[in-house]
Design a protein around this nucleic acid. Structure first.
Lengths: 248, 248
DNA sequence: AAGGCTCACTTGTTATAACAAGTTACACTT
DNA sequence: AAGTGTAACTTGTTATAACAAGTGAGCCTT
């Protein structure tokens, strides 16, 4: 289960970028230098760099070198929309005020099942149909008015870990907490759509009936392709939703 | 300018998937078979397949084989939302029927100005407030019903190039055409929000007044950080919008 | 028949090698 | 001084090779 070499090196280089050892615009050591530094072949170095390029952290130019992207801070948010929805808003100066409205054990709503059914994997579907740890959170916008509702469902497989991290500490930033406890999210499937506000939502978001809303549904999978978290975020659609910078 | 081998092979395989020669769940020929079929080394075949895996079209299982993904129709490449909005839909077999409704020279709407203001660069703001080449396009969905409206504004700096490529040839795929003429788009800022349908939109999209709509606004910047294109895409929000698989 | 073993198949990872192609600096020619 | 050309870098592409690791069928033992 040990990570492969090129992934380790990729992580190592990314760490330097995130920490700030490499500033935006800086040139990475050449492939030859990295080969000597890590004592591996060019194949491995190139795969590690290809990994970073795919994530948008660096850009390679034939004949010149590999350079740290200018907007790597938002590039990171692009490769992980979970961060974009939680972490990144705070990073953009939008205060993230979250209230935990409800928590308990329930079953997943039909919308989630639909999402899983699309992948046509009976095992996964069965897993998500089981009882889940459930959280409902309200998020305030800049004006301290209700901005979004968050529904999070965690797989029962996570129960032992959840005991170690009680629910009241999970009132925000679920994914970082999961990763901190060794649960690696490798893939996320997301669907974005737009609906009217039903009476229940109206109450929480303080909008009139039928108000336009953006619904963001996502399922997070581990490296073993097991769905461990499903979430819905319902935001008011009439105001700023999100902005991102996309490196090509 | 000839595409590299592994990209050609990747395109070739993807074509089979999109056309339907390979059904979801089908197993691709093994690496060894593909090596013989295309007469290339395993390196090249593996890079071509890695390409497809990155795009979410296929899934590889060690010891078993490579299989066509179940959800390949909704797997978008996240690294380029412009492609997702134009090129990629066609590539995935979703017919891209576009009608050019109107074209001319106008000034940018206030929404665009707001987008530029957010980046707090007066030079950029001034540039986008000038008169622009303007295009309005209607896009049909799978059922040949109106699916989205497209508004594209091109910077006056592009005028000489636009003469070479007349507007009637730009009825779709604006970005590829720009790149073809040497204009490199390095960054895109995008905002996503949700509104009601106003009477004008109702007419084109054939929806009742007040119908929920998703608005996707984007500004494209060159490598010199100059905004050269602004676009709005207004889609019906009540139906499937997009779904993506995000590799971490 | 049940269980375990081996073997042939698959993809995964890494190493080595050679050439292509873009960039840059420096020396050399004009 | 201006331009040219070469040489030494860089990344890009492909080939060959070897071994690791997961899978499954079939044989073989019990």
């Amino acid at each position: 289960m040990a990570p492969s070499l090129h992934l380790s090196i990729s992580e190592h280089l990314r760490h330097h970028v995130v920490v700030g050892d490499y500033q935006p615009g800086d040139q990475l050591p050449s492939e030859h230098q990295l080969m000597q530094e890590f004592g591996v072949s060019r194949t491995t170095i190139r795969r590690a760099i290809a990994n970073l390029v795919n994530q948008g952290l660096v850009t390679a130019h034939q004949g010149k070198g590999v350079f740290v992207s200018e907007q790597h801070k938002v590039a990171y948010s692009l490769s992980s929309p979970l961060v974009f929805l939680e972490d990144d808003m705070a990073r953009q100066g939008i205060p993230l005020v979250v209230t935990l409205l409800e928590a308990g054990v329930v079953s997943v709503p039909d919308t989630a099942r639909h999402l899983v059914m699309a992948s046509a994997n009976p095992v996964q579907a069965a897993m998500l149909q089981e009882a889940q740890v459930y959280m409902q959170k309200k998020r305030l916008d800049i004006n301290n008015r209700p901005g979004a509702l968050d529904y999070t469902y965690l797989s029962p497989a996570l129960s032992p870990l959840l005991d170690a991290a009680p629910l009241d500490r999970m009132h925000h930033m679920v994914f970082p907490l999961l990763e901190q406890q060794g649960i690696a999210i490798s893939r996320i499937e997301a669907i974005l759509e737009c609906t009217h506000a039903d009476p229940d939502i109206c109450h929480h978001l303080e909008v009139p009936l039928g108000h336009p809303l953006i619904v963001y549904r996502h399922t997070a999978y581990t490296t073993e392709n097991q769905p461990v978290a499903y979430g819905e975020t319902i935001s008011r659609g009439d105001r700023f939703c999100y902005s991102l910078t996309i490196p090509r």
